[in-house]
Design a protein around this nucleic acid. Structure first.
Lengths: 68, 68
DNA sequence: ACCCAATCGGGTAATTTGGGCG
DNA sequence: CTTGTCCAAATTACCCGATTGG
């Protein structure tokens, strides 16, 4: 039996994230490129986003920023 | 004499790998055919993947590529 | 031997990527 | 500076019937 890890990092596709934010998928890509959103890459280069992080962002939770 | 392996060689099914990457199981098959992912074959021809390798790939660890 | 979900194959739509432009 | 759109190329998703796994 395998135990579920503490961090269930379910992934979202670009279009799914885009729909949640009511934005074009390309915009989500820009956020990832800008480091505003962390992304996992498929072996083909497509991005998958952490659902937990997206939910936090949608809820208005500010992302951990490098010290100013 | 020991036949000890250097690492845990637990195997994952195509659908398990697909879930981890949030892709279709067929896509995982293409990765294997493309040599991006090493696969073990069952006697019936079904593929099984190395958990350790999959975890490395998910973490962004580039695969050791055959010499060009 | 039976059941049924999963994984073969192939083929064809739908997404995604990246760059550049407005 | 951020977002939306156009384009071509690459990657991925869904369709089928047949075989395999447990």
């Amino acid at each position: 039996m395998s135990v579920q890890h503490t961090g269930p990092d379910s992934l979202l596709t670009p279009s799914e994230v885009a729909s949640l934010f009511r934005v074009d998928p390309k915009t989500v890509t820009r956020w990832a490129k800008a480091g505003k959103l962390s992304a996992v890459r498929t072996l083909g280069g497509h991005r998958r986003y952490l659902e937990s992080e997206v939910r936090d962002l949608l809820a208005g939770v500010p992302r951990q920023r490098p010290e100013d």
